[in-house]
């Protein structure tokens, strides 16, 4: 595995391997000194053409905890302002012998294009409305740690599905791991076609609420307001917000997720955001953990996967727990 571009179409085994690998890094993060020398001498560059604080900080923290060096490239203070193309910017970084580029770009597909141009690893940190694979992994990891498994979980994703790369990646990761997903949104905030999406759709949050194990709230993007997709934020809150009243009707074991940043008072009531069942801060912590797993998986070594190693069966009939395979 050289790049992490998307989760759509990825096999369950690949997702599960990354989640399992994350357990080892959760142990590292729980230590007094949360740092291992695993990626010493490797360099990771973050190349963000869109604003982000948590994703960039999360990747940089993950890289530093693996002892990799980090470079941070933000468009506002770079030659992009002078008209440099994406390709030239990326080739410049590569010429500095960067091992991995973490890229966020407003254009869907930009990370795929970079992966074609570059020899180093490319990690998609969000491209347009398309994909945000590490967000999907950290959401899956958070749910796996909380519930043990995603198999059979009923997950409602609520909000602006149409403009959400988080929703696209999450739908595929959640369902690949065995969960059932229901999208809850006004029709104006759904993609024009849901053909091929393994989901159910509802326009009534109150009907879905009581039977959901997970309510995943998307950020209501205020900057979309001028498109007049909803009559007003107040009306959106009234129909699709997780108000205090709705929070009381959640199932006992239900949890609330949100990719951040939260608009308190719009998609989630301020007091609901502070409930124990709201796992937003777990998501942030787990974000560092799964990004460590992704960086390690992409950058540690270059040979084939050790699980391909053969020859165990060539040993004699006695099998021991001492060298368990």
């Amino acid at each position: 595995m050289k790049h992490l571009l998307g989760v759509i179409g990825q096999p369950r085994a690949m997702l599960e391997e990354l989640l399992q690998l994350s357990d080892s890094f959760a142990e590292v993060n729980a230590r007094a000194i949360p740092k291992v020398p695993a990626l010493r001498g490797r360099t990771v560059a973050t190349l963000f053409f869109e604003d982000s604080t948590r994703t960039r900080l999360s990747f940089e923290t993950a890289a530093k905890r693996l002892s990799a060096d980090t470079l941070s490239f933000s468009v506002s203070s770079s030659s992009v302002k002078k008209g440099e193309t994406l390709r030239d910017t990326a080739l410049t970084l590569q010429a500095m012998r960067i091992d991995a580029i973490v890229v966020r770009h407003a254009s869907s597909g930009a990370p795929w294009q970079l992966a074609r141009w570059l020899d180093c690893s490319v990690i998609n940190a969000g491209d347009g409305w398309h994909e945000h694979p590490t967000q999907a992994l950290l959401d899956c990891y958070t749910l796996r740690r909380h519930f043990g498994s995603l198999d059979g979980l009923r997950i409602a994703i609520v909000g602006d599905i149409k403009h959400s790369r988080v929703a696209r990646s999450d739908v595929w990761a959640f369902t690949a791991l065995g969960a059932e997903v229901t999208l809850v949104a006004p029709r104006t905030l759904l993609p024009p076609s849901l053909e091929g999406w393994p989901v159910q759709v509802s326009e009534d949050l109150d009907r879905v609420l009581g039977s959901s194990d997970v309510v995943y709230l998307l950020r209501m993007q205020r900057e979309r307001q001028h498109e007049a997709l909803v009559p007003s934020l107040r009306e959106y809150t009234a129909r699709f917000g997780l108000t205090r009243d709705r929070a009381e009707r959640l199932a006992d074991r239900a949890v609330v997720l949100h990719p951040g940043p939260m608009n308190r008072g719009v998609e989630i009531a301020p007091e609901v955001a502070d409930l124990d069942r709201c796992l937003v801060l777990d998501q942030v912590a787990n974000g560092v953990t799964v990004r460590m797993a992704v960086l390690y998986k992409l950058l540690a070594g270059s040979a084939a996967d050790p699980h391909d190693a053969v020859g165990d069966e060539a040993w004699g009939p006695i099998r021991s727990g001492g060298s368990d395979g």
Binding site: S24, V36, A38, L39, G41, Y296, A300, A303, D305, P306
Partner: peptide
């Protein structure tokens, strides 16, 4: 599990087999 501390990580892919405890 000493995977993250091996001196040959750069040469071959070393994956942890269990969580340190």
């Amino acid at each position: 599990d000493v995977s993250f501390y091996r001196d040959d990580i750069a040469l071959r892919r070393v994956m942890p087999h269990a969580v340190t405890d």
